[in-house]
Design a binder for these strands. Structure first.
Lengths: 140, 140
DNA sequence: TCTCATTGTAAATAATGGTATTACAATGAG
DNA sequence: CTCATTGTAATACCATTATTTACAATGAGA
């Protein structure tokens, strides 16, 4: 069980937009060739990032730009842009209400697992695009 | 995107075994009626918990028992018993090696996301079965 | 205004994985 | 030996992800 590759793809898109800003026009086809994935998936993902206010996309002429500085974009925003806001775990819908365990399981696990997810999001909030870009520069 | 209900089901199974120990024989059918799920899923999950050393199952005669005290069983063990040990996110396999972003994306995200997963596991390690059982008692 | 590369989006398809269910041999206490 | 139960394989169904084709809408530049 693992998350889909939407978030990693979104991160790669944003890094490419930042890195090639002013050098290449970052069209969906251009971005697709970095990720090695179908351009339609890039366009859909860009749509989600646009809806989240992280990028501007030039319809018609093509290309995308960040709306903020890389230091102000965190993986938390990216994650929330491309993943649904739902519980980390699926808890069985209809446990037996006559069983003391069954009738309490949602309450028991719900809050504790929500907390785990919040921790995960705050971990993501500590990772910025700028940090990743720096890391790339260093390795060149 | 969310984890399957395997972990919540496993937790419910373990709680029932602990709670009804000595009172009812905790067969797969009995446990299935608490979770309201097919008994085969219970048997498969019990098999995973047994492989992880958390329970003993009496083949033939039926019923399951914990091998440790509830205070010594954490959700981390349960999670690892029923979920595969894999990365939290799926990163695209063949990014473009000619792109500075593409050829670094695995290195960039790999270690950072592993850390996030480790944090998640250590959150799970802080939740014990005993704590959940206490919580049930209080609400009775 | 026309052109044309590009975006936005729908639709069809394939692949994957989780969940549900049936079936039955193996188990082991009584 | 009996019988309820476990262990496990096989199958089917469904939801979601990922892939791909197709095409109307966009909008800068000629």
């Amino acid at each position: 069980m693992q998350f889909s590759f939407r978030m990693p793809v979104a991160v790669q898109i944003l890094l490419c937009i930042a890195k090639f800003d002013g050098v290449f026009k970052t069209t969906s086809t251009f971005l697709a060739s970095s990720v090695n994935i179908n351009p339609v998936i890039i366009r859909n993902t860009l749509g989600q990032l646009k809806a989240a206010g992280l990028v501007k996309v030039a319809a018609g002429v093509g290309g995308a730009k960040l709306t903020k500085e890389p230091k102000d974009i965190t993986l938390k925003e990216v994650f929330q842009a491309v993943e649904e806001d739902e519980d980390l775990f699926h808890i069985q819908d209809n446990p037996n209400p006559q069983c003391p365990v069954g009738r309490n399981i949602h309450r028991l696990l719900g809050s504790r697992l929500s907390l785990v997810k919040e921790h995960m999001l705050s971990d993501f909030a500590d990772i910025t695009l700028a940090e990743l870009l720096d890391d790339i520069e260093k390795s060149e």
